[in-house]
């Protein structure tokens, strides 16, 4: 192996690692705020990528309908959990928060799609369709289980993953697609070619991380989210609604997922079930960060990307097996470091 190949592998690993880092951050965020180990994170990636590719093909994506369905289901779930009688006002209020954005996004999608809009409009529409699914999903699946153990939430999370993968197949079919790149730029740095798309990936990752850092470091709402994660009762006592925090966390997760999907859609062929594996790599990073540390997660994600890239060169057959095996010693170390103190809880 020569330096060129090594550099190429490194670059490839870094690009994937950046995506994993974004997903890992979303997982840490969701877990910290809601205790949900968010397995379906990867589905948002696939939905994002496939939605964008469908726009590229000049069609309105099925996810537009799905978003509407999620919204209606969320309202149904929300209202059915309320004991008092539900009036028309409450119904409209709920619909406004669950279904209004998906409705607008769907309408825009059906109008705009046949006009073959420029990439950036497709990207915005994709985000507008996918992001509201996050909070609605929280309302449908996780809010009613909010008092459950981490394990109950985890199993529910796996159920949601199953359902969303299935829905992905229904709406997008089994064929893989690739989206148009956001830019056709290609240039070379030394011996390796660099595409505009990879630059987008790096830029978006850095931007998203900076935005998140600012949101959590400066904005009161961001601090309220951290506070919920740190001390649920404490947050409630100052008037932060945990439900609001949950929805916000899921919205951010969906945003990050869809954004990642949009970024990788032009670089690799995406199938309805590709998201799971991509999400899992972010997941590994999040676990290495003990589902708690953002910086460790980001670094771990880059490491996972690079290890995977090297493994695919040296032992391509065993790439996945290697990545997933590497995590076990980390888990062991985390268990020993955190002690068995939480063993009595969580059940």
């Amino acid at each position: 192996m020569d330096t060129t190949i090594l550099l190429f592998l490194l670059q490839d690993g870094l690009t994937n690692g950046a995506i994993y880092a974004l997903l890992g951050l979303a997982l840490v965020l969701v877990f910290a705020v809601t205790r949900v180990i968010f397995v379906p994170q990867g589905e948002f990636v696939a939905y994002g990528a496939l939605t964008l590719a469908t726009f590229d093909a000049g069609r309105a994506p099925g996810t537009a309908w799905l978003g509407l369905a999620f919204g209606l289901a969320a309202t149904a779930s929300e209202l059915s959990s309320e004991r008092r009688r539900v009036g028309l006002r409450r119904l409209l209020q709920s619909l406004a928060s669950t279904t209004a954005v998906p409705l607008l996004a769907a309408a825009a999608a059906f109008i705009v799609a046949p006009m073959r809009p420029p990439s950036w409009i497709s990207v915005l529409l994709t985000l507008a369709i996918i992001v509201p699914m996050g909070p609605n999903l929280y309302r449908i699946a996780f809010r009613p289980l909010a008092d459950g153990s981490v394990l109950t939430l985890f199993i529910a999370s796996i159920g949601v993953h199953f359902a969303m993968t299935g829905l992905g197949l229904v709406f997008f079919g089994a064929e893989g697609v690739r989206a148009r790149p956001l830019s056709d730029l290609v240039f070379s740095v030394g011996p390796i070619p660099v595409t505009g798309q990879t630059l987008f990936v790096y830029a978006a990752t850095i931007l998203a991380m900076t935005a998140l850092a600012l949101f959590f470091g400066r904005a009161l709402l961001g601090k309220a989210l951290i506070a919920t994660a740190m001390n649920r009762l404490g947050a409630r006592l100052v008037g932060v609604r945990t439900e609001m925090s949950g929805r916000l966390a899921f919205a951010l997760a969906a945003l990050i997922g869809a954004l990642s999907g949009v970024l990788i859609a032009p670089m690799t062929t995406i199938y309805y079930d590709t998201g799971f594996l991509i999400g899992l790599k972010g997941f590994i990073a999040a676990i290495i960060g003990a589902l708690a540390s953002y910086p460790v997660t980001a670094l771990a994600a880059l490491a996972v990307g690079i290890i995977e890239s090297l493994a695919s060169f040296f032992a391509s057959n065993f790439k996945e097996a290697i990545v997933f095996t590497l995590i076990i010693p980390v888990l062991l170390w985390l268990s020993l470091a955190h002690g068995p103190a939480d063993a009595e809880e969580g059940h």
Partner: peptide, 19 residues
Amino acid sequence: RELFSGMAVEDNLLLGGFL
């Protein structure tokens, strides 16, 4: 007490005035 122990004193106070 239920403080936000990983946050600065100032942030704890700010969150007290969340509403």
